[in-house]
Design a protein around this nucleic acid. Structure first.
Lengths: 227, 227
DNA sequence: ATGGCATGGATTTTCGAAAATCGTTGACTC
DNA sequence: GAGTCAACGATTTTCGAAAATCCATGCCAT
């Protein structure tokens, strides 16, 4: 892994991606306090761009800020998981319904293409099945994004993307125990087929079930372990 | 108006509120470029807190950032207005439905109280009817917030609050021409009564109509005037 | 022993200047 | 005359240190 990538555009943007990445793949864990000294070491830059990155992350809910007490990684909770799930059902469900109504041939092509890529990699790593593969994570996101990409509402897409990102903080924990119990691949294939068949009702129902199963598996795992 | 209020907690937080306020009441207009020199003069502080404020505002969509070309106020567009309206119908509608389902006595009390306050001030200023009164704006927001405050979903509430804020950038333009043509007070009273009567279907329908009328009035006004 | 208060260290927050970047003006070539 | 390229000015972006703030420790009085 490249320790120093060729700074995309601004250092602040780099810091944002790097810290967000560290949060999402578990190197920074929920509740951890974020000291500027550590973050400067991680990102190899001064305090200003780090601070801007944290400001963005906080506005998106990945970190929280106590005035004059610094930033910390947002903590996980059962109630937030339920809340995220309910909101995903509402927003992504509507976005999927609209996409099925409005989608054209290119939308269908995006679904087929992203699903094909997703189906070609396993969910967990061979050496450590409990850790999600980075490429699976990216392709999984791309597939779900493709499903709703024809909804015609940038704001709704943004909301869905935000929710997906938050759910990702929980998803990393989920795959470790549900890998064998669920056939996630089949669920994705079914979603694709229902969408391509323009079955709005069925696709939304399948999406709801997809999210509910994820939430249920997590609920059983989390119960008693977090607030 | 106090030019220098007793800095709430941090300067960055102050700058955020001040700049957002300037955007929402029209002193900074859509499309305006935001030069740090001007903003430092407005906020009476150095560049660092201003930058953090802009980072937050950008994450919320009130401003936009072109890398190395600085920040500017997000511009208005007909398509965004339609998008905001559609999303408000979806999200606030659901939040209202849930609140009617779950709301208790204190929820009802909040609605009655905020409506009472709202009904006691006129929408436009006496001297300049085309300019929204600040206190009306605040009370209007409080009333709509109260309606959905019992939905039980912090995330949904946050989404609604964000959408309400964005709609506010358009609302300021709206009142100048629709003041006489619409009886907004009656619409608010009807919303309150339907909610207290626990008529979920009716209340959501009334909310949708409320937003659609606002959007229609704006559409007629904006047409041809913005992108 | 217990409660309040001042002191010290660790950390965040802010400052003012230096470095980097972009758009433009102007000269120069074809 | 049109197009290309280099240097300038304006502005953003970043730095490193100073100022402000919070938490904890220890002291003193009750």
């Amino acid at each position: 892994m490249a320790a120093d990538r060729p700074t995309g555009k601004t250092l602040a943007g780099d810091a944002y991606e790097r810290i967000r990445g560290a949060i999402q793949d578990g190197r920074l864990r929920p509740g951890d306090r974020l000291r500027f000294a550590d973050l400067q070491a991680l990102c190899a830059m001064s305090v200003t761009p780090v601070r801007e990155a944290l400001a963005r992350l906080t506005a998106e809910g990945f970190t929280v800020l106590d005035d004059h007490r610094g930033f910390s990684v947002a903590s996980l909770s059962l109630s937030e998981l339920r809340d995220i799930t309910a909101n995903r059902k509402l927003c992504e469900g509507e976005a999927l319904r609209l996409s099925i109504e409005r989608g054209d041939g290119e939308w269908e092509a995006r679904i087929v293409a992203t699903h094909h890529l997703l189906a070609r990699v396993p969910q967990g790593r061979d050496d450590m099945p409990s850790v999600i593969r980075h490429d699976w994570d990216e392709r999984h996101a791309a597939f779900h994004q493709a499903l709703i990409s024809a909804c015609g509402s940038p704001i709704l897409l943004d909301t869905c993307l935000r929710l997906f990102g938050h759910a990702g903080r929980y998803r990393r924990v989920s795959v470790s125990l549900s890998g064998l119990q669920r056939d996630v691949e089949a669920e994705h294939r079914q979603l694709m087929e229902l969408a391509l068949a323009r079955d709005g009702q069925g696709a939304v129902a399948a999406l709801h079930a997809h999210y509910q199963r994820t939430a249920d598996a997590l609920e059983a795992f989390f119960d008693g372990r977090v607030a």
